[in-house]
């Protein structure tokens, strides 16, 4: 099984240059954003933004936090794309090799899930390090809140990847793009359904309650997302093993 995880990382290694570029770019943009918010144009605009009744202090902090969440999200998302491994395996015909290795179908599926967990752990470690630097540079957001945001981001990616892996196994080779789209759509639909009334009020009544709830979730209640991610992961893994055992040769 260890060999299969190593193989998955070898496949991801192909994306290494892309990953390093995204990582560097997002880090630079994040630091520039913070410096600007602290000393530059954003700091100058702060006063006028605060005076604007439509923005206010909460709105300003929320915008800053959301922008930072995006910067934290990008590097993790760049490596956590499991559909890429399925696509590359399919292209090489690796499933025929995997099928004759001395590993069980469960081990083959487990290897894929361990790979995603490892990439997310690496992403979380990098983001914690980045958060440490960013929190020192700004007063808009504290380190504890950023940790919550990092886990929230990792949880979203875990949910996305769990859905993606299951769909790739269920639908077989050549359907990786469909799995990516469907996983994204499922997450968005679930989010909209869960906060339907608040989304409606935000759109039609300019109510910022949904924004406040999202910020509360990201900054203080990331554990809810972590629990949802773990449940999704367990369900996805169990179903993937069952499907892979029935449909041999998909992984």
């Amino acid at each position: 099984m260890k060999g299969l995880i190593i193989k998955d990382f070898m496949v991801l290694r192909k994306n290494l240059i892309e990953f390093v570029m995204i990582l560097s770019l997002s880090s630079v943009v994040a630091i520039m954003f913070i410096l600007s918010a602290q000393y530059g144009n954003l700091a100058s605009a702060k006063e006028s933004l605060l005076a604007d009744p439509q923005v206010g202090e909460f709105g300003l902090i929320s915008m800053t936090s959301l922008a930072l969440t995006c910067y934290l999200f990008v590097p993790m998302a760049a490596v956590a794309d499991m559909s890429y491994i399925f696509r590359e395996d399919g292209k090489a015909g690796f499933s025929s090799v995997a099928a004759v290795l001395p590993v069980t179908v469960r081990q083959r599926v487990s290897a894929r899930y361990i790979t995603i967990l490892c990439t997310l752990v690496a992403g979380v470690i990098f983001d914690i390090f980045a958060a440490l630097i960013i929190s020192r540079m700004t007063e808009l957001i504290v380190f504890g809140e950023m940790i919550n945001m990092i886990f929230a981001v990792a949880s979203f990616l875990m949910i996305y990847s769990s859905l993606c892996i299951f769909e790739c196994i269920l639908w077989g080779q050549g359907k990786e793009e469909v799995a990516m789209i469907v996983s994204t759509v499922i997450i968005m639909v679930v989010m909209v359904v869960c906060g339907y009334q608040k989304f409606k009020n935000a759109i039609f009544n300019n109510d910022d309650q949904i924004m406040k709830d999202i910020m509360e979730l990201l900054k203080h209640k990331a554990y809810i997302l972590v629990i949802i991610a773990l449940v999704t992961l367990i369900l996805s893994y169990t179903c993937s093993v069952a499907v892979a055992n029935r449909k041999r040769g998909v992984i």
């Binding site: 260890k2 193989k7 090489a92 001395p102």
Partner: peptide, 22 residues
């Protein structure tokens, strides 16, 4: 058909296989 990824070298295959076969 080979089944190994085209970017893999003999060394890569050795690393993978020594962690699979006892």
């Amino acid at each position: 058909e080979m089944g190994f990824h085209e970017f893999m070298t003999g060394k890569d295959i050795n690393i993978m296989m020594k962690n699979i076969y006892k």
